[in-house]
Write a protein that binds this DNA or RNA. Structure first.
Lengths: 149, 149
DNA sequence: CCATTTTTCCCCACTTTTAACCACCTTCCA
DNA sequence: TGGAAGGTGGTTAAAAGTGGGGAAAAATGG
């Protein structure tokens, strides 16, 4: 249930993107020096998705095999997917350089929120995150009730 | 029926959260040094839930497979779940640092109540716990009667 | 192909926060 | 009644987060 590269990002952190578009990855989320990441904007440009290359591969593989997607759609999807994704390596201080264009797309500047999500994490604009979180809360509470959390 | 990491927390303890948001885990509940825990607020922000990463995984797995939850709701649920949960490790004295924001959410400060509950335990605000306990007592007694306890 | 400008990235430095460690007091039990 | 264990408080050293300078690399233009 826990492969070696299977990361687990949990919690929420507020950090700053500096003048050089660098953002510190929470220390608890780091595994070692010069960690590699794939960065891509979420489909609706609501936030940035960050994950390891392995997680990216897993995600791609699952898209590859989904029976609900036609071969044609799949081809188009992968073309866009790989053009949107960017590769980045953390520096010795554990910071990631976020590509300027991706930041613009999802409205990232100054203080942002890093949100853990299993094998990946998200980077959100502060206000947008607040709104989305509030919108999702009723659903969360509903499911929590159902499963008896 | 008892896997190695399957814990059983029983009883109720009154402890103090200090200036640094540390709380001592009851000695009887400790298993070893540097024990790991996942901390998350209960859905209605009534108290904090504390459990081992294994217990957290089990709980996640049960949500994963529940047939009463739609795929969409499930996705939202997991997003929120992982953003709310925080990872923490006990120090050599058996104390846990509780994240400030989580304490605020459920109104924890100074003296609190630790309540055992199967594989996890709860941390309550004193008054709130008292009220909730009184409200739940009739139900408890009713069921106890039914099952002949 | 070389010179110049721009960008990237590596490293150092500072401040704040975290966590490791030590010390004390109280309680429980032999 | 003394020793050990449990709970709490505080000090100090380490780590985390942030900012910035300068070398290396890349892009640009003649």
């Amino acid at each position: 249930m826990h492969t070696p590269d299977q990361r687990f990002y949990a919690g929420e952190f507020r950090h700053f993107i500096d003048e050089k578009n660098r953002i510190t990855i929470p220390a608890r989320w780091r595994r070692g020096d010069a960690e590699e990441f794939i960065i891509l904007p979420e489909a609706a440009h609501q936030f940035l998705l960050v994950m390891s290359p392995e997680e990216f591969s897993r995600m791609s593989a699952s898209a590859e095999s989904d029976p609900n997607v036609s071969a044609r759609d799949r081809r188009i999807f992968f073309r866009q997917l790989h053009s949107r994704a960017q590769h980045s390596v953390a520096d010795k201080q554990g910071r990631l350089v976020l590509p300027e264009d991706l930041c613009k797309k999802v409205g990232l500047k100054g203080e942002v929120v890093l949100v853990g999500g299993r094998g990946r994490f998200e980077i959100w604009n502060l206000q947008r995150r607040k709104r989305a979180h509030e919108e999702e809360t009723p659903t969360y509470q509903h499911v929590a009730n159902v499963i008896g959390l």
